[in-house]
């Protein structure tokens, strides 16, 4: 079990590294979908081994919503917003972002060992923490709103991984509520993107330095 968890965490981190250096938004969304299916597979395995029906249901829900439905909605929106297909001006270069990603993994390990490990006693528990921090880094290092949304969902995936393995038994209704909320947020996100495209007529749409009303 421990080995499978470590392997899942490792794959998810590698996929996140790929998202970090990728500039084509479509590829990032597809990578997120793959990472969600991997997470779903892990939950399925966990559910079978522990004979927990809740984990089986959560696995199915993760695959359906995070693996398929949400990436589908995002790709559908992206097809209409052709100018969003590529992150034209990332805030930092590929080499820098990968270096920071590696440092984040090391930092997460140190952070986990010096804080949570004392209570949880699961050696590989730093993997979800690293994933969470990486997700937040993906959000702040990119201007593209689709990639920011993916970063947010990576953070949530990390928590699902964390709770699924370390604290199994979290009431299913909570997990289902989380997923329903996520669907709502993504739908609103897609709608906002749609409207933004119609509202913004010229210039670089992901740059908002000149919005006077939001200063102060």
């Amino acid at each position: 079990m421990q080995g499978i968890f470590s392997l899942t965490g490792f794959f998810l981190i590698v996929l996140l590294f790929f998202m970090q250096w990728e500039v084509y938004v479509k590829n990032i969304i597809i990578t997120f979908s793959v990472s969600s299916f991997i997470l779903s597979g892990f939950l399925l395995y966990l559910g079978i081994v522990n004979e927990e029906h809740i984990l089986l249901a959560l696995s199915a829900l993760t695959a359906a919503v995070r693996g398929f439905f949400i990436p589908y909605i995002m790709l559908y929106s992206l097809r209409k917003d052709t100018w969003r297909a590529r992150e034209s001006e990332p805030l930092m270069g590929t080499a820098t972002s990968i270096l920071i990603s590696v440092l984040i993994v090391i930092f997460a390990y140190i952070l986990y060992r010096s804080t949570l490990y004392g209570f949880i006693k699961v050696p590989e528990g730093s993997l979800p923490i690293a994933l969470m921090l990486q997700g937040s880094f993906l959000m702040i290092s990119r201007r593209n709103t689709f990639i920011q949304m993916v970063g947010y969902m990576v953070m949530e995936n990390a928590i699902i991984l964390f709770s699924g393995y370390i604290f199994p038994g979290l009431p299913f209704v909570i997990e289902a509520g989380v997923i329903l909320d996520l669907i709502g947020i993504v739908m609103i996100f897609a709608l906002l993107m749609r409207i933004r495209e119609n509202t913004i007529s010229s210039g670089t749409p992901d740059s908002y330095e000149n919005i006077e009303e939001l200063k102060g």
């Binding site: 947010y152 906002l192 933004r196 509202t199 919005i211 939001l214």
Partner: peptide, 13 residues
């Protein structure tokens, strides 16, 4: 308008 949409986006994130 652009400002309202940006405010909404910042709120969500």
């Amino acid at each position: 308008d652009e400002t309202a949409l940006e405010a909404s986006w910042r709120y969500i994130i």
